[in-house]
Structures are given as structure tokens and as C-alpha cells.
């Protein structure tokens, strides 16, 4: 009976979280942001783009402002293409000259949407807007009757956590799927790699929402959950970036001034804490950003020196999430209401 009841509880609380998100307006707010981004993508057009290379071929082209770009005869004889065309936004209201070809322009937009809007701004906004869900749920006057039900306490917490994750997954899928469809329909470029950013976004959010969950269980305060989880995200980002900067310096032979104890502490902090910068790198890698743009120097250095282990990084972040969730469950089970 317990496992069946636990499943029913999780299902009911997932539904309840969706109702809560609609009633509090968070659902419509995030949907509104997605709608604006989808509309922006639907307003994109590419005019006069040149094909710079066939698939698998290295692009051989001249920028449009190169002094030799005017010598059409030589260029045609040597098979060199000059970049041309424009990307238009807002149904032609804004015109941006293409730096390369159409595929490159669409990738640039997708990268900005996935890494910038969704993975950074979206995750932080989702953390802020969903942080109130749990303290409200755990309020003494409303949780008491739920605790007097036979459903196990861990199922109540897992149900609410799963509800928020399902909500963010739906919003992420609408955002990524909608912008992908709009861009594809308008430009004819269907880049399936972009769709990988939705699960990565959920992973990123889920890891930091577990911290929000623990704070909510310990304090029952929305303010503590919001500021605590954001502060923790910044701390983790700093530790993540700092570690990469440090090991890249050491690997390059210029980090001799850093003692072994400091390196040990930073390595421990990096591996113990979640790694938001690494998750950002994974999103960029998934989108093949390295084929088009340079990375921040620190990230390039750790990748070049083999000091970035994507699978281990994600596994360690997931292990942290499980640990924090377990701590939240323990605390919830032991708390008197």
C-alpha cells in the first residue's frame, strides 16, 4: 500500500504544483517570456546569404569588408566566396549584416537563447519564482493536515520537488521547442543539437532547486529560499570558474605561487559543489559553439589540458543534488509541525 500511496501522493502533488503555478502567475510569466522569444524567432528572416561551404568542407571565404572582396574575377577563379546577406529581426525592422552564412546566424541566435536566456537568466528567474512554492506548502497551518495523512513524509517532499521540476521541464520544452520550430520554419535550418539544451536546463535547475528545498524545509521562509539559493549559485559559479582558472594557470606553468593546500581546497570545493559554469560549457558544447565562436580563455585552457571531465562533472553535481535532497528529507521527517 505504501508504494502505491507514495505514487498517488507524488502524482497529486505534481498536479497541485501546476495549479499553484497558474494561480500565482508564475506559469503565465514564464510562458510570456517564452512567447516573446518564440515571436522574436518567428520574426527572423535571412536574405541574400551565401553558402560558404558544403557539409564537411572547411569554409573558405572572405569577409565582406576585406579589401580583396571587390575582385570578383579572381575570387571566382579561386573558388573563394565573399560573405553576403542579412539577418532581419522584428519582421524586417532590424537588419544585421551576416558575419558568415545562414546556419551560423541561426546558431548564434540559438546559442544566445540557450546559454544566455534559458540556462542563465531562465534558471535564475525560475529559482526566484518557484522558491515561494515550498515555504507556502510547508506553512504550519496548511501542512499539518497533510502530515496527518498516511502518505509518507518523503513522498510529500518528493511530490512537490517533482512538481516544480515537471513545471520547469514543461516551460523549458515550450521555450526550446517553440524557438526551434519558429527558427526552423523561418530559415529552413533545423539544428537538432539545440533540443539538447532542454534537459541540460532542467539538470541545472534541479541541482540548485534542491538547495532551495533544503532551505525551505529548514527555515520555511521564501526570502531565505530565494536569496539562499541565488547566493549559493553565485558561490558555486565562483568556485567553478576559479578552479578552472587556477588549474589552467598551473597547467600552463604560471601558477607556481599557488601552494598545494590551496589547490587541494579548491579541487575539493570544485568536486563537492555543483558546477554551473560546467553546465554552461556543456550547453555550448551541445550546440557546437566551438565550431563558430571562441570560448572564454579559461574554459578553452582546461579543455585543451584535459582538465575538464564532462561526465564526472555532471555526476558529481547530481551526487550533490541527491545528498541535499536526502538531507532535506531527513530534516522534514524529523521536524515537528
Amino acid at each position: 500500500m505504501t508504494s502505491n500511496l507514495a505514487l498517488v501522493t507524488i502524482h497529486q502533488l505534481v498536479r497541485d504544483t501546476f495549479r499553484q503555478s497558474r494561480a500565482q502567475g508564475v506559469f503565465w510569466l514564464l510562458l510570456g517570456i517564452s512567447a516573446v522569444c518564440i515571436l522574436l524567432c518567428a520574426s527572423v528572416n535571412i536574405e541574400g546569404a551565401q553558402q560558404l561551404a558544403t557539409p564537411g568542407e572547411n569554409p573558405d571565404f572572405l569577409p565582406r569588408n576585406d579589401p580583396r572582396a571587390g575582385d570578383r574575377e579572381t575570387l571566382e577563379r579561386d573558388g573563394v566566396v565573399v560573405v553576403g546577406g542579412e539577418l532581419t529581426l522584428g519582421f524586417g525592422a532590424v537588419r544585421v549584416p551576416l558575419a558568415r552564412d545562414a546556419g551560423n546566424a541561426v546558431h548564434a541566435l540559438q546559442l544566445a537563447l540557450a546559454a544566455g536566456v534559458a540556462d542563465t537568466l531562465g534558471v535564475l528567474l525560475a529559482l526566484v519564482w518557484t522558491a515561494g512554492f515550498l515555504p507556502g506548502f510547508l506553512d504550519r497551518q496548511s501542512i499539518s493536515v497533510l502530515l496527518a495523512k498516511p502518505a509518507p513524509r518523503w513522498a510529500l517532499l518528493l511530490g512537490k520537488y517533482a512538481g516544480v521540476l515537471a513545471f520547469v521541464l514543461l516551460q523549458g520544452a515550450i521555450f526550446v521547442g517553440g524557438t526551434w520550430l519558429a527558427l526552423g520554419a523561418r530559415t529552413g535550418i533545423w539544428d537538432f543539437a539545440y533540443l539538447k539544451s532542454a534537459p541540460l536546463l532542467l539538470l541545472h535547475f534541479g541541482i540548485f532547486f534542491s538547495v532551495s528545498l533544503l532551505l525551505a524545509v529548514c527555515t520555511r521562509s521564501t526570502v531565505a529560499s530565494v536569496f539562499g539559493s541565488i547566493a549559493f549559485w553565485l558561490l558555486c559559479w565562483g568556485m567553478n570558474f576559479g578552479r578552472h582558472a587556477l588549474v589552467a594557470d598551473v597547467a600552463a606553468g604560471s601558477g607556481a605561487q599557488f601552494g598545494q593546500p590551496l589547490l587541494g581546497i579548491v579541487e575539493f570545493g570544485y568536486w563537492f559543489l555543483p558546477k554551473p559554469a560546467d553546465l554552461g560549457m556543456l550547453v555550448r558544447d551541445a550546440l557546437g559553439a566551438q565550431n563558430f565562436y571562441g570560448q572564454p580563455a579559461v574554459f578553452e585552457a582546461v579543455q585543451a589540458h584535459g582538465l575538464f571531465h564532462p561526465v564526472m562533472s555532471v555526476a558529481a553535481s547530481l551526487a550533490f543534488m541527491v545528498l541535499i535532497f536526502w538531507a532535506a528529507v531527513r530534516q522534514f521527517a524529523a521536524t515537528d509541525y
Binding site: D16, A23, Q141, S142, S144, K149, P150
Partner: peptide, 19 residues
């Protein structure tokens, strides 16, 4: 906890989700 399935409870200052 299974016995709680056979119990009903009214809290002294009940607050239900308003939505």
C-alpha cells in the same frame, strides 16, 4: 502511518491553498 488513513482531522486554524 497506515492507521492515519482511518482518521480524519480538523486543524484548529485551518489554512487551505486558496487556489
Amino acid at each position: 502511518r497506515s492507521t492515519l488513513a482511518r482518521i480524519g482531522y480538523v486543524h484548529e486554524r485551518q489554512a487551505f491553498p486558496g487556489y
